[in-house]
Design a protein around this nucleic acid. Structure first.
Lengths: 219, 219
DNA sequence: GATTTATGAATGAAGG
DNA sequence: CCTTCATTCATAAATC
């Protein structure tokens, strides 16, 4: 397993040597080496494992002494709350839960792109099973999602290439030519983080791993 | 607060651009787009957060009940985690150079107050002579500048209470920073899982950044 | 080098 | 739809 420090050092060290390649007439692109990918994979895998262990353990504890929710409540909540400070207490604007977001996102992807009143209603109904939500929320979400997605695409092309400056690293920007291609091989598995969150939420100890084979080397 | 999840959507939408490029005489190399990198970053971030919270919780539990049987053991002491995962995470953001800031500031003062897309382009063009910058950066800068300038004025009313000021605002928000009243005392007996999920949703930790050199300029 | 502050960026919502 | 605003988050910079 890669040591964290080492990894960091490596990263910092490589930051400057990370190459910006010129590919065809395309603009510069950022490149990750196999090693980097491998490192990432391992890192994620470790997290996944740890999470699983911890959750499992907690369940055990809770089971053999059902005070997890009650007596320990205040105990572990303090430290936890401390770090994230304000949160549940004060929120006036809607924020999608992980589950909701996932669903929305999926719909956005496959969806026709046309919210449609009927759809909105359906979606809202479905999403309300996973948390507070209103039709307006859904509507706004789609509006914003589309608008921003669109703008992103346009703007990606805009890279400032003023000459006479920045002597060292070229700032470079990723290209955005083939935005629409959908190989979707890279992240084949369900977004693990989200799934993780979901599972955690549902008290399901099974956390997804980042499959070593799938991510690391498929190319 | 949505941040942690947001990767999901971006991922599904953007994770598709991975390409295998032939670079020079090198063999195929893996290429990640900014979106992909961002996605990975967030994924790891989520795990890091979960782990962090879980470990914290575990410490609390262990401290009290000392359950040797279910201790995490080596897992817990894994170097990766031991060195506080979030430490190795970092992300860079654009920072205006003194010159740029000066120009921006001047424009803001005399400025019409209406950034306008065209203006933005011009400004960006000019500023890029003095350092890396994107239109988004400029846009954001003006947005923030205006918003904060506005808020400041509002808050000023609160400070002058000594004299017979005409309009005594009700208690003002005071400093934007301090207004964060710490909830701290709400007994949530959420289970471990819930807490973890909650935090994941509300807190977006940093992640190892893979491309330090350039601020993702979009827009 | 741990906290605090300042500020770039993200995003839900409102206006047109 | 597209633009703008308000609020919040995360982090670079500043401070102790």
């Amino acid at each position: 397993m890669v040591n964290a420090m080492e990894w960091q050092k490596q990263q910092q060290q490589n930051q400057n040597q990370q190459r910006n390649l010129i590919v065809g007439e395309m603009n510069y692109v950022k490149v990750m080496t196999d090693e980097q990918l491998e490192t990432l994979r391992k890192q994620i895998a470790v997290y996944a494992t740890i999470c699983e262990k911890l959750i499992e353990m907690h369940k055990t504890l809770s089971a053999q002494q059902d005070l997890a929710g009650v007596r320990l409540g205040s105990m572990y909540c303090d430290p936890l709350m401390a770090s994230s400070a304000h949160k549940i207490t004060s929120r006036q604007r809607w924020t999608p839960t992980p589950v909701q977001l996932q669903i929305l996102e999926r719909m956005f992807d496959q969806g026709t792109g046309t919210p449609s009143k009927e759809k909105i209603k359906e979606i809202t109904a479905e999403l309300s099973q996973h948390g507070q939500i209103s039709e307006t929320n859904v509507y706004n979400w789609f509006q914003n999602r589309r608008a921003r997605s669109k703008r992103k695409q346009q703007n990606v092309a805009a890279s400032n290439n003023t000459n006479a400056n920045t002597e060292s690293e070229v700032e470079t920007e990723v290209d955005s030519k083939d935005k629409q291609s959908k190989p979707e091989e890279f992240q084949s598995q369900e977004s693990l983080a989200n799934v993780a969150a979901q599972n955690v939420r549902l008290h399901n100890p099974d956390l997804p791993y980042l499959n070593p084979e799938s991510n690391k080397s498929d190319s």
